[in-house]
Computed example of a mutant assay.
Amino acid sequence: MIEIHNIHKSFNGVQVLKGIDGVFETGKTTLLLGASGTGKSVLLQCIVGLVKPDLGSITYDGKVFTNNRLDLKQEIRRKIGMLFQGSALFDSMNVQENVEFPLKMLTPDMTKEERLDRVEFCLKRVGLEAAHKKMPSELSGGMKKRVGIARAIAPNCTYLFCDEPNSGLDPLTSIKIDELIYEITKEYNITTIIVTHDMNSVIEIGDHIMFLHNGLKLWEGTKDNIMDTNVKELNDFIFANSLMRAAKRIEEEGGDIDKL
């Protein structure tokens, strides 16, 4: 479980986060939802430790992360897996070497054989057991995301952070990536936080959702009640799409949404 309290962050006098509180439960996917520029990625970076908040506290399973000793922060960071928006694979390394990289950095006591066994396991888990020797330039967008997920979970992460995991993917591949992240979260009991603006992801895997607007948390709930709120900014975001507006209208009229 990760807990954040009263997180503030400003850049060059512009306040980006304005006192965000939240609890991210183990074994659940929490989606940070909102339009571009609302502070989602900055909040994620604060939680991970890439950006230091101006004010507030962050704890990982009861261990204080903010303003703590470097060695204690590093202990927590070893348990973090990160899936970057652009996958961020090393172009000069093949798939196997990319997935093995964090094991070399974070688990120096592992032998080469143990590392390769773990790489094999992770690639098989994401459906890429035959892609070991491929270079990133030979992979599709969806395959790159899968390699990114395999690399993130390779060190047996306890916490998984995903920044726009569906960015640049077609709708079918996006659904498959969502399902994979959701399955891994449940299977390994990981605390997963996902930055997104994709309503398909919300409907598919939104165990818990936090909606951010202008640096404030305006709403939180689940995929089951997000369609029935009185928060204008959230409704404007959700129903900007004509299909979502039609779904809402049919639901209010007691019709069958599946007929859309």
Rank of each mutant, 00 (worst) to 15 (best):
S87K: 02
A88E: 00
A88K: 05
L89G: 05
L89M: 09
F90N: 05
F90P: 08
F90E: 10
N94Y: 15
V95C: 12
Q96W: 14
Q96C: 12
E97R: 15
N98W: 15
V99C: 05
F101I: 13
F101S: 10
P102I: 09
P102A: 02
K104V: 04
M105P: 12
L106A: 14
T107N: 06
D109P: 10
M110K: 08
T111Y: 00
T111N: 01
K112C: 05
E113I: 11
E114L: 03
E114S: 04
R115I: 08
L116W: 01
L116T: 03
L116A: 06
L116G: 12
L116P: 07
L116K: 00
D117L: 02
D117Y: 01
D117T: 05
R118H: 03
E120I: 00
C122E: 14
L123P: 06
R125Q: 11
R125T: 06
R125F: 04
L128E: 03
A130I: 07
A130L: 15
H132F: 13
H132D: 03
H132M: 08
H132S: 04
K133H: 14
K134P: 13
K134F: 13
K134R: 09
M135Q: 12
E138N: 01
E138M: 01
L139A: 06
K144D: 14
K145S: 00
K145I: 02
K145T: 00
R146H: 10
R146S: 05
G148I: 03
I149D: 01
I149M: 01
A150G: 00
A152G: 11
A154S: 04
A154G: 03
P155G: 05
P155Y: 10
N156Q: 15
N156M: 13
C157S: 11
C157Y: 06
T158I: 06
T158Q: 14
Y159T: 04
Y159W: 11
Y159P: 07
F161H: 12
F161N: 02
F161Y: 14
C162T: 02
E164H: 02
N166H: 13
S167A: 05
S167C: 09
G168R: 11
G168Q: 02
L169G: 06
L169V: 08
D170S: 04
P171G: 04
L172T: 08
T173W: 13
T173N: 10
S174N: 13
S174R: 01
I175M: 09
I175S: 01
K176Q: 12
I177S: 09
D178M: 06
D178W: 08
D178T: 03
E179I: 15
E183D: 12
I184L: 15
T185V: 03
E187V: 07
Y188F: 15
Y188V: 09
I190L: 14
I190G: 11
T191G: 02
T192A: 09
V195R: 08
V195N: 10
V195M: 04
T196I: 06
H197A: 07
H197Y: 11
M199E: 12
S201Y: 09
S201D: 04
V202F: 04
I203H: 10
I203F: 13
E204A: 10
I205L: 13
I205G: 06
H208S: 08
H208D: 08
I209F: 15
F211L: 12
L212H: 11
L212R: 01
H213L: 10
N214C: 11
G215R: 01
L216A: 08
K217T: 15
